[in-house]
Amino acid sequence: MIDTKTKYMNPYLAGVLLGLVLLAAFYLTGRGLGASGAMKSAVVATVDVVDANYATTNSFFGKFLGGPNSPMKSWLVFEVLGVLVGGFISGAFAGRLKFKIEKSPNITNRRRIILALIGGALFGFGSQLGRGCTSGAALSGMAVLSVAGYVTMVCIFGTAFALAYFFRKNWI
């Protein structure tokens, strides 16, 4: 019998290791982890390429332009490129590299894709309004005992719990 419990790392051990990675980020660079900030850089850089005039005059995108460097030459962009590499290495070792749409058998691929797109759009939008996502605002913020970190964490998980019932058919 295959013991499915050994497929992934023990979650508490993984948590300690993730905490040590986060601690290393603080120790080396004075800042925590992040993800949505890199996506923002990608959006700003793309808008700048498509219409540089609009990008610099837009009061949000313009904030990240005009410096000596491209918005892509940022800490979070390089960190997220690392996440891609690290995730790939782990997946390769664990034999989990496979193109697939993961979903409940109760829903179609099409529905899963539409939900992923809508969910992503909400998360992307919310991460800008909330000045960071689960990594940068919640996890890193909690480690430095920031009020913003705890508030963001409670709002993200609290809302997901509150809405879980209405979206249950998509998952269970």
């Binding site: 997220v80 996440v83 749409i101 993961e102 992503g120 919310g126 609290g158 997901a160």
Partner: peptide, 28 residues
């Protein structure tokens, strides 16, 4: 922002960091 992100989480199934990690192993 947190409330909107929470809605995005339960609808989309990921947050930004985990989506990058999952995309790295081929999750469409």
């Amino acid at each position: 922002g947190g409330v909107i992100m929470g809605a995005g989480f339960i609808i989309g199934g990921f947050c930004p960091g985990t989506s990058v990690c999952a995309a790295a192993i081929g999750k469409i």
